[in-house]
Design a protein around this nucleic acid. Structure first.
Length: 260
DNA sequence: ATGCCGACAGGATGTCGA
């Protein structure tokens, strides 16, 4: 089963690009982030015509996540437990049937959190803590679990071109990295790092300041696997070339293949 | 030291992203 994650930065503005990549890569499951539209505005027809079912958790203008799946998703959960007042659409989870068992997949869009020292930053840390608690509960099932999306965390210095340039940024704050480590330390495997040690492996390049041309990227889109899923890991790749396509998102897809 | 670019809502330009 091929499972992908992609922060598309508006599914409407990116529709042609997303469809082109789906046709080329043919993933079985796709976790989208920053769809930037409501459930009603989601272009489900276009994905259905390619053979995908859509589970959507959208909101107007900002955020918004979705899961596309060739097999119909089951047991869809549209919010991250732990804060009734949180109205940001940043989490959706579903159980996907495979040929040899099922996998629970979550599409995650963690808060940006800039600038540090504000309530936006504490919201980020609180949100990641809620994700950690939820992940701990799901890991107790000892099942195939894939928690993937835009974590908005640069885990380590080698995950960005110039660590000094990111020292003051919420994505690289010690508290942000510690929150990410608390999640992986529950027993989750970073699928990309389990397969690749190469430096300069990035998933995001800013639109500004020629970041793509200069390869000034960061790795913030992650695929985290439960032990059961990690045992089924075949490969994980960053779809770097997509950043060079017409009208690209500032993020590229990450594609992970599992024996499920 | 700040903006750079791009999308959104709305109908000008401010907000947000990372």
């Amino acid at each position: 089963m091929k499972i992908a994650t992609w922060n598309v930065n508006s599914v409407k503005a990116r529709l042609d690009t997303v469809l082109a990549w789906l046709k080329e890569a043919s993933p079985d499951v796709v976790c989208l982030q920053e769809i930037k539209t409501t459930d009603e505005g989601f272009p489900a027809d276009a994905f259905e015509s390619l053979g995908y079912n859509c589970a959507v958790h959208g909101q107007k203008s900002y955020n918004g996540v979705a899961i596309l799946s060739r097999r119909p998703p089951e047991d869809v959960v549209r919010r991250l437990p732990g804060a009734d007042g949180d109205d940001h659409a940043r989490y959706i989870e579903a159980v996907i049937p495979g040929d040899s068992g099922v996998v629970r997949v979550a599409s995650i869009y963690a808060p940006n959190g800039n600038p540090p020292g504000t309530e936006r930053f504490s919201y980020k840390l609180d949100w990641l803590e809620r994700l950690s608690r939820h992940a701990g509960r799901m890991l107790a099932f000892e099942e195939n679990l894939v928690l993937t999306g835009d974590y908005n965390v640069i885990p380590a210095p080698e995950d960005c071109f110039d660590p000094n340039a990111w020292l003051g940024d919420a994505l690289f704050q010690p508290e942000s990295r510690a929150a990410f480590r608390r999640i992986t330390n529950l027993g989750l495997t970073d699928a990309f790092r389990a397969c690749h040690a190469e430096p300069r492996s990035y998933t995001f390049w800013d639109y500004q300041a020629g970041a793509w041309v200069k390869d000034h990227g960061i790795r913030i889109d992650h695929v985290l696997l439960s032990p059961q899923a990690a045992d089924r890991l075949i490969s994980c790749s960053i779809q770097r070339k997509v950043r060079g396509w017409e009208k690209p998102s500032d993020h590229v897809p990450v594609l992970c293949e599992l024996v499920i």
